[in-house]
């Protein structure tokens, strides 16, 4: 018995170290369990506040660029407005108003923190449950898609960016319907994502645009992802492995839109029914 106590006395520093490590590992494991990472997340109150403060200063550096982007977008929207169309036929125009119903709502948000050099990159935004944000809402900028929300707190939310090794998203080439899966290879670096699963008998060219398929209900159909930069045959299969240059520059993200799908629950419930 005495020897046992002596033994514990010798290794007590080591034991203390192990106990603390176990506490930390519990946190790491809790992180992989999707929704439960409440404590150690930058959507937590303190760090959210801190990053908002930081962003208030650092956002000045990008103002000129952001203004250009917003001006371009304004011009585009103006062009689509009703007043730009002249009536060419003398017949009265019949507008069937109730065949369209809104499915996606867009709402603006500001990115307050953004990483690009990790394996699992995330984006923190200044909107949270107070603005009706929920997990699994799409994040896009005016140029293309960025990611989707994962964790939401009272006033902040974090999104998984496309530069995340856990990402899996159905995509299609623009104007076609062959579905592929979007993923990110860490070794490709920032702003390059990969698409696998499109059979080689589909003719694809370098420079083709890749857009979202819309099947997951996170993004509308046809949101831009990027253009094909390189195509090669995937080793050991009959599919393409496409390297896609994202249309968004992930180093500079400031103003984004969050997409709410009004029929998401309905879509999920019907897709979950087994045939």
């Amino acid at each position: 018995m005495k020897n046992l106590f002596l033994f514990f006395n010798i290794i007590k520093f080591f034991l203390f170290f192990i106990v603390l490590q176990l506490i930390v590992f519990n946190v790491v494991v809790a992180k992989t369990d999707y929704q439960q990472s409440g404590i150690l997340n930058s959507s937590a109150k303190v760090s959210g506040w801190f990053y908002t403060l930081k962003n208030q200063f650092s956002s000045y550096w990008n103002l000129r660029n952001e203004n250009n982007i917003l001006a371009t977008q304004n011009a585009q929207l103006k062009q689509e407005s009703f007043h730009n169309y002249t009536i060419v036929s003398s017949n009265s125009i019949k507008v069937i108003d109730d065949i369209y119903k809104k499915q996606y709502l867009f709402q603006p948000a500001v990115v307050i923190n953004n990483t690009t050099n990790k394996k699992k990159n995330t984006i923190t935004m200044d909107v949270g449950r107070n603005k009706g944000i929920r997990p699994e809402m799409g994040v896009v900028s005016s140029k293309g898609i960025i990611g989707f929300t994962r964790n939401v707190s009272g006033h902040f939310s974090t999104a998984m960016s496309l530069l995340n090794t856990e990402l899996n998203l159905p995509v299609i080439p623009k104007g076609d319907s062959c579905q592929g899966t979007l993923f990110w290879d860490f070794n490709d670096g920032v702003n390059v994502v990969s698409v696998k699963g499109i059979p080689v008998y589909y003719k694809l060219e370098v420079g083709d645009t890749i857009v979202t398929q819309g099947g997951a209900g996170i993004f509308p159909k046809g949101e831009t992802v990027g253009v094909i930069e390189k195509k090669q045959k995937q080793i050991g299969s009959n599919n393409w492995l496409l390297k896609v240059k994202t249309s968004v520059d992930f180093n500079v993200i400031n103003h984004v839109f969050l997409i709410e799908n009004l029929y998401k629950e309905e879509l999920d419930s019907i897709q979950n029914i087994l045939p």
Binding site: F16, V24, V27, V28, K31, L40, S42, A44, F50, K118
Partner: peptide, 27 residues
Amino acid sequence: LIVALILGLTMDMFKDSGGIHASACLF
């Protein structure tokens, strides 16, 4: 060790790295 744990967890909170900095600081 305790101070290292606090320091590491603070960094994890800001960097969104889920405990790896805390563990490395402890080491």
